[in-house]
Design a binder for these strands. Structure first.
Lengths: 203, 203
DNA sequence: TATTTCAGCGTACAAGTGTAAGCTTAATGT
DNA sequence: ACATTAAGCTTACACTTGTACGCTGAAATA
């Protein structure tokens, strides 16, 4: 038996339906900018004009999706760090966690990747902000773990995130067995960065 | 005085007009997939239906643009290597060359970046191929210069290219003074990778 | 109970899209 | 010199798009 729904509950529910429908559409070969209001409405099971009761624009919805995707990624990082015990497998654990996330939330990761270089300047900077959060949190962790300067930690963190995200992009289009190869590859590359920073002496 | 044009010459000329018009359109906030045939035709100064005399599709044109962009990038690499004399400034020269290229051909670099994570699987793999070329040529250079195994050179090269491309993406949206900061940053990060590979001992 | 609010709907329209069909006209082939 | 070819044009059609307008009915409020 379904519970009696208050008006507010109902509204939040359809709002969530729209968001889910949008993510579902993006799963295919659609970007936020090429996604049409009518298509989203169709998928969410509402009339096109009803969309406006919840969002001002498709842009408005898009910003919501980016925020939500960024949030999921940050939560992921925390869960990954909780799994790390010895320093030696910090890289392995992080990469495995992210790769797992990408596979289970392809569309979510895709939004970030796609809009990062997409056609909307607003989306681009929104994604950029989310990535900066991501980098910053990793940087703090690295600084604490490796006892290096903040400057070095920032540089290392950013380099690592760029490498990992690029690998993620490859993984999105790759077969499962290739994904394992990609994961191994990126682990080595992250190791290079870590070793390099340790060796680095600022002149 | 304009030379008398043969039919074939004229055709190649308008074909090039279309290509230039497309690149010009992409300079704005347009991706290949969101670019309309009519818009290109308008910009090229031809009737919409005349487009078909030169390309089967917008897809067909898109592949041509990706190929052309990739070619320019490979030519750039060669010119950069010609400028390098001592090993010490190989990174600096390469980064400076690329940053210069990005600024002078924003739209060209944008096509590669955008379609790399774009909505067309065909474009994505086409760009991926171009990037692989780019990586391979750098890898050969690194292997020869640093006397390391091909496996290590491939890994190093790919990591470096990913870092540089990410920096390029940032530079596209950045002010000139920020671009200098970005260039410095990426040089350090590439140094880390190089140092790390040198330190790396496969277990 | 009577009134107000508002999520969702249907209709309607102007604007833009890809592309099919057929014409014009000038360069090419014979 | 005549016939052929083909680049480029105009017109036309069926679609999709965003969104303005006004209605309905049920939940919220008084």
């Amino acid at each position: 038996m379904t519970a009696k729904k208050s008006r507010e509950q109902q509204k939040q529910e359809t709002r969530q339906n729209i968001i889910n429908a949008a993510f579902a559409c993006l799963d295919a070969e659609k970007s936020l900018s090429s996604l049409s209001l009518r298509e989203i409405a169709r998928n969410a099971g509402i009339a096109p004009t009803s969309f406006y009761r919840h969002f001002k624009d498709v842009n408005d919805l898009g910003m919501t999706l980016v925020d939500e995707a960024g949030l999921m990624l940050r939560q992921l990082m925390r869960s990954a760090r909780r799994r790390i015990t010895q320093e030696s497998n910090a890289i392995d654990t992080s990469v495995d966690t992210l790769m797992e996330f990408i596979n289970e939330n392809k569309n979510v990761f895709r939004v970030l990747l796609r809009e990062h270089t997409g056609t909307s300047a607003e989306f681009r900077s929104a994604v950029q902000r989310e990535i900066q959060h991501f980098i910053k949190e990793l940087s703090d962790y690295i600084m604490h773990r490796q006892k290096i300067s903040q400057q070095l930690a920032d540089l290392q963190s950013e380099a690592m995130v760029m490498i990992v995200f690029s690998a993620g992009a490859q993984a999105l289009d790759a077969q499962p067995n290739q994904q394992i190869v990609i994961a191994e590859k990126v682990k080595h590359q992250l190791m290079f960065v870590q070793l390099g920073v340790r060796q680095f002496k600022p002149k």
